[in-house]
Design a protein around this nucleic acid. Structure first.
Lengths: 107, 107
DNA sequence: GTCATGGTTCGATTCTAGTTGAACGATCGT
DNA sequence: ACGATCGTTCAACTAGAATCGAACCATGAC
């Protein structure tokens, strides 16, 4: 029941605004999205804080963002590459991502 | 413990992005915000659907949006006027509201 | 093949948010 | 002053989301 690896991602046309907004409404997830704004990252490097988040929690964080269509999570050898779905988001909700990424200081 | 009427609203500088995003991440609340985009409304007219929402539920919906700083809720005689805090939002998170209001068909 | 590594899934618990009736408050009309 | 109307607050319940350990799985290294 676990799985192999290629995880399901919603199609660009299936993105729902409320889901995206919800995914972004958590400080930790928003933070991650901002980190990804500068480019894809290996998942291992992603939420590297002290103390380190448990794997399952981290995985769950990714899941929420992935299922909302905010990030892409692809297998790469033994680890994973996480990236922002910038074009898809821009096409579905023009201006939204930029606006969110701009709100710098604000949590 | 109930109250009179002028309800507390967060100051423009205290708006938090995550709270705003969360407030907007619910279909009913988002819908209300879109209705308000065309101008203030009397609360009584606001979420007029069938079957009608119980008063307490409606009031709670308003509360979430108000506490996030998305709407203003002011006494007006025996009822209330609800309005979008457009300028405050635009100043705090430029482009955000427009982007959200644009996502028309998408729930 | 075997082992170490990185990540997902399951399941239990905890915490937070939504829902709604009932009680209360303020205001307006008479 | 009284009653009706409109909305908030309280409190109890339900539903949903976050947290995290344990089990599991693929891949890569040896």
């Amino acid at each position: 029941m676990t799985s192999g690896r290629p995880l399901p991602h919603p199609a660009r046309d299936d993105l729902e605004l409320t889901q995206v907004l919800f995914a972004l409404s958590d400080p930790v997830r928003l933070d991650l999205v901002r980190q990804l704004a500068s480019g894809p990252q290996e998942m291992a490097d992603c939420l590297a804080v002290e103390p380190p988040l448990p794997k399952s929690t981290k995985s769950h964080t990714m899941k929420v963002l992935r299922e909302a269509g905010v990030i892409r999570n692809e297998p790469r050898g033994r680890n994973r590459i996480v990236s922002l779905r910038r074009e898809d988001l821009d096409s579905a909700f023009p201006g939204l991502l930029d606006a969110v990424l701009d709100g710098e200081g604000t949590a």
